[in-house]
Amino acid sequence: MRRYFGRKLLIYVLTFFLAVTIDWLIPRFMPGDPVQTMLSRAALHAEAREVMYGYYVRAFGLDVPLWQQYLNFWNALFHGDLGTSVYLFPQPVVKVIMRAVPYDILLLLPAILLSWFAGNHFGAIAARTRWLDNTLLPVGYILTATPYMWLGILLAWVFGIVLGIFPIAGAYSFELRPHLSGAFLASLLKHWFLPFASIFLVKFGGWAIGMRNMIIYELESDYAHYLEALGTPRKLIRKYAFRNAILPQITGLALDLGVIVAGALVTEVVFSYPGIGYLILQAIQNQDYFLIQGCFLFIIIGVLLANFAIDIAYVIVDPRTRLGMTGEGA
């Protein structure tokens, strides 16, 4: 057991190092210069511009050779410093990200968990109910195959513009400041609903299809046939099948949860929802090295933690993994 987790941990540390290095490299490969972009917004005299440029380049630590920037980056990272945002200068990246994260969690955690729960149960029922399989499942296929931004825009258009029930932008009404009150919470909920529903719908279809296929596979397996030949009630056979079919779904769920901090880029862009996905888009458009790095760092950590959680969860729920650890390849 200890050797198993020791090896896993080593792999995770290596992955983290490589991923963060790539994360540092990629923004710097982009053509252009973030400071230039920033200064070009202000109409300045040539001399003033030169002075300002020198100042900002030093402030962001971009005046030293690349290898030194890289070392400085790791050094700062271990001190919990992700640098200063270029686009939202002079706010620290950590603060910018922390402001966006609650919206992601609020939006994605319920969407992912509820769609997982509902999709799995619906898929399991559809697997053994012919009319449901023939009517509602194709809808699931269509939902999953729909280009997401199109569905998002459609929802925004129908419910936001045509029917005018839901607002189409922001996380709360522009007239309000975030505070604890009924009016603010109501506004928050109203703005939350459409992005939530669009993610829920698409994910629900995906989970339901996966579960349906897994259940059919399990019900056709040898152990199910044996139980049937022994006259076991359907209820028990389905219980066994469901338990086995849910295993791959758990992996999927954990991977989904891992990217929560990444936000749902397209959803957040469509509905102008101020989560990390929206932030990433802004950061890329403004060549904000530090904000891009910061956002992706969160994603890397999230994915790695989720994978580690799956490794642990599998040891608990699937005896085959647990017992396999004592054998070769452990």
Binding site: Y223, H225, Y226, L230, G231, N244
Partner: peptide, 26 residues
Amino acid sequence: RMNSYRFERISIIPQYAMNALNPTQK
């Protein structure tokens, strides 16, 4: 209706006896 006869009155050792047990249950 056959269920009440299966296992109690008539039983089978299947061809696939080695895979006949659910892998995730004791």
